[in-house]
Simulated assay, not measured.
Amino acid sequence: MDLIKHNFKTGIVQLRVTDLDDLWYLRQIIDPGDLITGKTTRKVKIGDSENAKVVKKTLTLKVEAETIEFGEDNSSLRVNGRIREGPEDIPRDSYHAITLSEGTEFTIQKTQWLSYQRQKLEEAAEKRFSYLLCLFDREEALFALTKKYGFEVLVKIKGEVPKKDKAQQITKDFQQEIIKALDVYAGRYNPEHIILASPAFYKEDLVKKIKDKELLKKIVLGVCSEVDESALNEVMRRPELAATLKDSKAREEQLLVEELLTEINKQGKAVYGWQDVKNAAASGAIQSLLITDAFIQKKREEGKFAEVDELLKVIDTLQAPIHIISTEHDGGQRLSGLSGIAALLRYKLS
């Protein structure tokens, strides 16, 4: 995301959407009541007679957000609400949706930008390195790309392997097929690193067959127990990949959830659930808050976002970091199992 202009004193920030990952961030940043200004199209009646034409016009509108939802294919974000400013022929207080997609330039105006919202804005604007993950064994391989909020599975391929009870001639070298796919995806996405992970010694065998020196420079080896989507999370938490994945948001969030679960299991400095987190905030005990994107969205849909917003403001005054955890990865799913909201504490509550 491009941060074109910002003035947090007036509450106005001008942005440009540069990739689809930005939409996930914007869904967390834009709140009901925010004023969104941008170009949009709207059907307008020309003339007052019965034969008046209805045409689509491109115009600039300012809308007070009420609902913030992804489009059907997740390639856009629709901010729907009442029109507050626009051309004279557009009725005030009528409803309109401004669609945000790749390339859209628009402004957000808030009465107050909280610290965590500024942080999310900075995260979206900074360059985040992508990592290509290849998990494989002798029979199958899974390729995935890290995103700012989780993973995108690119492809799963299966190899031809001889069955133990049947004599079978194999015409393809499965590891060569994997190397070809690595070369294609490395060229297409230009990842910062390529993580090869496998059970046993398969990864070492495959690396010996790679002749491309530029490809080899990017490869880092890891371990996985399975070749499936759940193993992607396992690989991201591997200690041998800590230095390689230091800029990975998904890894950072998963380790936070691990720390939370450790504290809960030993009945230490952690709480979870809406009421317990509220009580901890009121006591000033919160060190950091973990809340899922799904929890926030559910409260919006129930018309109860105001109470979440109030809690976030209290925690913001405590100068405690607020982590919005994506449910696209294992960490967020595990946090959802704890109601979707939890906190690490400065001290243990009695």
Rank of each mutant, 00 (worst) to 15 (best):
I4H: 10
H6G: 09
N7S: 14
F8M: 13
K9T: 11
V13T: 09
Q14H: 15
T18P: 00
D22F: 03
D34T: 11
I36R: 05
I36C: 05
T37G: 01
K45E: 09
K57A: 06
K62D: 01
F70Q: 08
R78S: 12
R84G: 03
E88H: 11
S94F: 04
S94T: 13
L100H: 01
T104M: 06
I108F: 09
Y116A: 03
E123F: 11
F129M: 04
Y131G: 05
E139M: 03
E140T: 04
Y149R: 12
V161T: 13
P162L: 02
D165Y: 03
D165I: 04
A167L: 12
Q176I: 01
R188G: 00
R188K: 10
I195T: 04
A197G: 08
P199N: 09
P199L: 09
Y202M: 13
E204R: 15
D205F: 15
D205E: 14
L216D: 00
I219N: 04
L221S: 01
L221I: 14
G222N: 01
V227P: 01
N233C: 05
E240M: 12
T244I: 04
K246L: 02
D247Q: 14
A250P: 08
L256I: 12
E258Y: 14
E259V: 10
V271I: 06
D293E: 14
F295G: 03
Q297D: 13
F305R: 13
L311P: 01
L311A: 07
E328H: 15
R334K: 15
G337V: 02
L338Y: 09
L338S: 10
L338N: 05
G340T: 06
I341N: 11
A343M: 10
L344A: 00
L345W: 11
R346K: 14
